[in-house]
Amino acid sequence: MPTGFNLNYLIYLFQGMGWTVLLSLLAFVFGGLGGFLVMLARISRIEAVRRIANVYIQVVQGVPLLIILFIVYFGLGILGVSMPPLVAAGLALMIYCSAFLGEIWRGSVEAVPRTQTEAAECLALTRWQVLRDVVLPQAIRIATPPTVGFLVQVLKSTSLVSVIGFVELTRAAQVINNTIFQPFAIFGIAGVMYFALCYPLSLWSRILERKLNVGRR
């Protein structure tokens, strides 16, 4: 280790890593709830609802997460609510995740053969029952690999919330670097930590994908 870098810094980085994981989970869970609603809206029978959901997705996917983050951060400030950065960060990430997961899941739902829906409708099931009992269980299998893959995206995205002062892994690394200026070592270690979180998920997603393809053949 280069001089100046000591155990305390490492602990600080690990704490940051903990926040990164927590923030990712929050973003994923709440973004997942939002994404489920976005998916439902995208397959709605009402054209206006489908349109609105589509606009939402296009806008969120057409604007950098960094800008969404700033808008939420300053927006909450304007509303006069003084919130910890965690709330702004979580909200921005949730919006971001909901659009992407909504799109991924819509694709999965639409990948379930139309004949399955038809057969279920012919058995007098309601639209919601068809979705819950027949379509979703099959869509989940299809959706799992890309959803796990998206988790990697979420983990990496959380690095951006460092810009509003939330001390997760990237911010922690920045803070340390500002004091001892060992950028290669510090950002290198942070990079390794991110890699340790992301790479297993990437691998897992790939394995799931392969299994799914084999199962379908």
Binding site: V152, L155, K156, S157, T158, S159, L160, S162, T170, A173, Q174, N177, F181, Q182, P183, F184, F187, G188, A190, G191, Y194, F195, C198, Y199, S202
Partner: peptide, 21 residues
């Protein structure tokens, strides 16, 4: 794999501040 499993922001910091150092 390294690039796809680390954040862009970390890559920039590593490169920018690293080379500067």
């Amino acid at each position: 794999e390294v690039v796809r499993n680390t954040p862009f922001l970390i890559q920039i910091f590593f490169l920018f501040f690293g080379l500067a150092s």
